[in-house]
């Protein structure tokens, strides 16, 4: 039995509700106990860490202190939340002055005892691929998947502690364990444009467009992601990109938790696919998965 502190973050209660739903269902099925961190606060992504160092570390500190006190590793399904929590932990573990300053702001001191995991890594390492394989009821045979990690899941390397920064494989291997096939492609860790979606849409359309078209060219049926912001850009901007380029892409973007859910035998309703702009149901039906 794996017990984890769950930090859903703001996106999972709004634009990425289906990520939250599928994560909770899948974890329950697998026997991963998620304890939602009581009174969790904003991780500080983007607005805090580009304006104030102290705010960037103080906001995640509350969560880290809870994890340290209760001695439970914490996980976040959102790459930005994961990144903020992990970087704050790393900063305070290496910068004594910052740790003290944050302690003053928050009112309690953090001693560096928390463990922060990305949800995608929980399935791969904490739960383990062998255990996952044993749980598969409906192998995702014939489905070609491009695994998209985005910029924050492996970077910065000293914080994320991954062996292959440019060409990570853990999500590929997780998807393979579910019975699907993964494609070789070059945009695994490229930037999707993230929050610039709101301020510099043109840049995001270019970046996201490149990612989508490379996945398509490399023969993917779907793209698997583990970040609500990547999902938002790849999914909701897709039609606009198609209109602009005049080329049909039609690539459903599926969360890693939804992917596991499908292999565990859940249906489109359980996985809340109706929340997606690019409907995955058609492709999945064609492949005989739904």
């Amino acid at each position: 039995m794996v017990k984890l502190g769950y930090f859903p973050g703001c996106s999972l209660s709004s634009t990425a509700k289906e990520y939250d739903i599928s994560t909770r269902i899948v974890c329950e099925d697998l026997g991963i106990e998620l304890v939602e961190i009581p009174h969790w606060v904003c991780c500080g992504a983007t607005s805090a860490h580009i304006t104030s160092d102290i705010a960037a570390n103080a906001l995640p500190a509350k969560t880290l202190i809870w994890a340290e006190k209760n001695n439970i590793p914490i996980t976040s399904p959102c790459s930005a939340c994961f990144s903020r929590l992990a970087i704050a932990h790393h900063t305070m573990a290496t910068d004594e002055e910052m740790r003290k300053d944050v302690g003053e702001v928050v009112g309690e001191e953090y001693h560096g005892g928390a463990k922060v995991l990305h949800l995608a890594r929980v399935f791969y390492e904490t739960y383990g691929l062998e255990a996952l394989k044993a749980k598969v009821k409906k192998p995702l045979k014939g489905l070609k998947v491009a695994s998209y990690y985005g910029c924050l899941m492996t970077r910065p390397p000293e914080v994320c502690d991954f062996d292959r920064i440019e060409n990570p494989m853990f999500m590929d291997k997780t998807v393979q364990a579910l019975g699907a096939e993964t494609v070789k492609w070059g945009y695994k860790t490229e930037c999707c444009g993230a929050a610039f979606s709101l301020t510099k849409k043109e840049a995001v359309l270019k970046l996201t467009g490149d990612i989508l078209s490379d996945a398509k060219e490399c023969g993917a049926d779907v793209i698997v992601v583990a970040c609500p912001l990547c999902h938002a850009n790849l999914d909701s901007r897709q039609r606009e990109i198609e209109r602009k380029s005049g080329k049909k892409i039609g690539l459903p973007i599926i969360y890693i938790s939804q992917m596991i859910g499908l292999a565990l035998g859940y249906n489109a309703l359980d996985m809340a696919f109706k929340k997606h702009f690019v409907d995955p149901v058609k492709v999945l039906k064609e492949k005989g998965i739904l």
């Binding site: 070789k184 492609w185 070059g186 490399c218």
Partner: peptide
């Protein structure tokens, strides 16, 4: 910044 393979080419 990066090299990746696309079909039989290196980008």
């Amino acid at each position: 910044s990066k090299i990746y393979e696309k079909k039989d080419k290196l980008i």
